[in-house]
Every structure is written in structure tokens, then in C-alpha cells.
Design a protein around this nucleic acid. Structure first.
Lengths: 164, 164
DNA sequence: GTCCCTATACTCGGATAGCAAGTGTCCGAGTATAGGCGG
DNA sequence: CCGCCTATACTCGGACACTTGCTATCCGAGTATAGGGAC
């Protein structure tokens, strides 16, 4: 079970975009890719997913780029995972119980399989945990635990990009 | 993010094997596959994983087959997931923070990335939830919620296989 | 009749193809800018 | 000098190959059984 690689980059991107004023020009995907050391083309694909999910907002044309579409406090890690990785459950019940020689009529299987329920319950715990962390939390954690020099370099770089 | 298909079959198999006495002959993979309506060859692969993990025990040769290797109460859904799907985390931190123009010396990144911590914490919640459910729980749930006719047909079939 | 031996049939185990989804890339549509031209 | 127009450069967006890992399959190694033969 592996999460899509794009999720990691998407979270990093969102936590950077949280520091970009809403009226400043958007940050192009090329700049975001360079800042994070990631392939620009694939990151573009990920950014599209964020836009479709209403997490990011894109400005087309020259001086275009990406902003957060809503407050960083209203963007959770779960939102990003669902946007990039899809919302399908990890465990998929194929109704094994309805197959084989011991099966009975399909009408007798109205309640979901107990095995599936157990797995979906675990996934709910996973999702609740991710939903409890917002981009604001990630940003605050960054400010306190990251080396100050990296913060300064990041701020300089961001300012240079925003000026353009 | 999708869990391996084999996990579902593995859990069903274990909950059936829980009803096979330890001194009875083992159940061959062909029988298990027929009972669950699953491809026998692929199920064999899954069974190998369960054996390697110490969840099932295999008897080779004629009259061979599979048993649970330990008490059903000591086998959790998490054990089966780890055995079949592997124990790697779904989220993999590629240390994006150490790349790009704002990075500083590698020595400054001793503590794990806050983003990775959040994801791993969510995965821990997932795993704890799965670890709280044992094969005994699944078996009891089966006995109470499954159509009695299916239980009877299953018992008959199992008896016929055990006699052989 | 009893014991032993051999051939057989059935089992697991690991090595081997096929396929789908995720990963990585590219080119086209659209827009703000900058420069040149006319008034 | 000011305003307008056009060409340009840069952006996002969707369509197109490739690779990795999961799915599915097969054949070989090993063992208990069943039958036949010798004593």
C-alpha cells in the first residue's frame, strides 16, 4: 500500500503557498518545482489535481501562477490526499462471501461484510487523523522547528519570485 | 492508495482455517480457492506470504495443506496486512526539505520532517485499529451475522474436505 | 496372512510472463507585457 | 507626448509514452498413499 508520490510535494507546495499574500502574483509551477527540487512537469500534473479539488487557484497567462484557493486553516492533509490520490478506499470488498459453493441468494447480503467494515473503520481512523492537521499547523511547525537560515533563504527566494 | 487484493482473500482464508481442528489434516490451497471463488495460483502465492510470516503452517506432500500456525486470538488483521502487503509505510518521506535553493547542511535535519510525522501518526492510528481486531472477532461476527444456511453449507463443505 | 518395496498421485514452493496504474514528459490554448507606430 | 496596436514571451491545461509493481500462471521438489510382490 503506497500513497502517491505527488502527495508529499503537494503538501510542501501548499505550506509554501500559505505564506504568499493573496493579492501578490501567483507562483508558477516552474518556480515551485525548483524550490522543492522536483520535476516540473509532474508537479504540474499534481497542481492540476489541487485546482480541480478547489484547494489551489490558478491564474493563466503571463504573470500567472498558483495561490491557495481558500484559507490555509481550511485545508487539511486529508483534503490534499483525496485531491491527489483519489477518494477510493484502500480496501475494496469484492464480496468473496457471495462466491463459492457455500453462497446463498444475493438478497441475503444486505449488510456489509464484517471484514470490510473492520478495514473501513481503520481507514476512518486514518482519515480522521489526517483531517485534524491543517496547513496552518504545518506552517507553524515549520517556523518553530526548521533551521532559521533555511527560513531566511526561503523567504528571500519567495520574495524574489513574487517580485518578478 | 490501494491495498493488495490478496489481503481480502487472506483474511477470509484465516477465518475459515480458524474452524479447522489443529489435528485435522490441513486444507489444500485448491480447496480454499474453490471455497472462496478465487484463482488458486494467486491464492497459493498469498498463502506463502502467510506461512513466511508465521501466521499459517503448511504440511507438504499428499494429505498436505494449511493450518493456522497459532491461536486465532493471536492473529490480528494488522498481522495479515503486514504479511501480505508488506510493512512499508504508505507515505514515504523523500526529504524534499533538503532539496532546492533554500536547503542547508544535511546535519541540520536530524528530527524527522513534520509532514512525515503527521502522516505516520495517521498510519499508526490505522494500524492500531487493525491490530484491535483478531480472527476470533471475525469468526464470531460471522457466526452471528451470516445467513444460517451459508454457515451450514460451509460446515458441510469443510467436513467433506477434511475427510478426503 | 504379513511385511516391504515401488510407483503414483497429490501437495507446497519458488521462478516466470502479463497487465494496469502511477510516473514522467511534451506540446497546444490563452493572456499580460513590452515595444513600436501613428496621431 | 500620449494612446493604440501588434508581436512576443510566459503561463496553465490536457493529451501522450514509459516504468514499476501488482496480478496471474506455470512447472519442479517432496511426501503420504495404494497396490503388488516376496516371504
Amino acid at each position: 500500500m503506497r500513497l502517491s508520490e505527488g502527495v508529499e510535494a503537494a503538501v510542501h507546495v501548499c505550506s509554501v503557498l500559505a505564506f504568499v499574500p493573496d493579492d501578490a502574483p501567483g507562483v508558477p509551477v516552474a518556480a515551485l518545482a525548483e524550490f522543492h527540487g522536483v520535476g516540473p512537469a509532474y508537479l504540474a500534473k499534481t497542481m492540476q489535481a489541487l485546482v480541480r479539488a478547489g484547494i489551489c487557484r490558478s491564474e493563466p497567462g503571463r504573470r500567472g501562477g498558483f495561490h491557495l484557493a481558500r484559507s490555509a486553516a481550511d485545508i487539511t492533509l486529508l483534503d490534499i490526499v483525496v485531491a491527489v490520490d483519489g477518494e477510493e478506499t484502500a480496501f475494496r470488498c469484492t464480496e468473496i462471501r457471495q462466491r463459492g459453493p457455500a453462497a446463498v441468494e444475493p438478497e441475503c447480503y444486505r449488510a456489509p461484510c464484517g471484514i470490510a467494515r473492520a478495514f473501513w473503520s481503520a481507514e476512518d481512523a486514518y482519515r480522521r487523523s489526517l483531517a485534524a492537521v491543517s496547513i496552518v499547523d504545518i506552517g507553524e511547525e515549520l517556523l518553530t522547528s526548521v533551521d532559521p537560515r533555511q527560513l531566511e533563504k526561503g523567504a528571500e527566494w519567495l520574495a524574489a519570485v513574487v517580485i518578478r
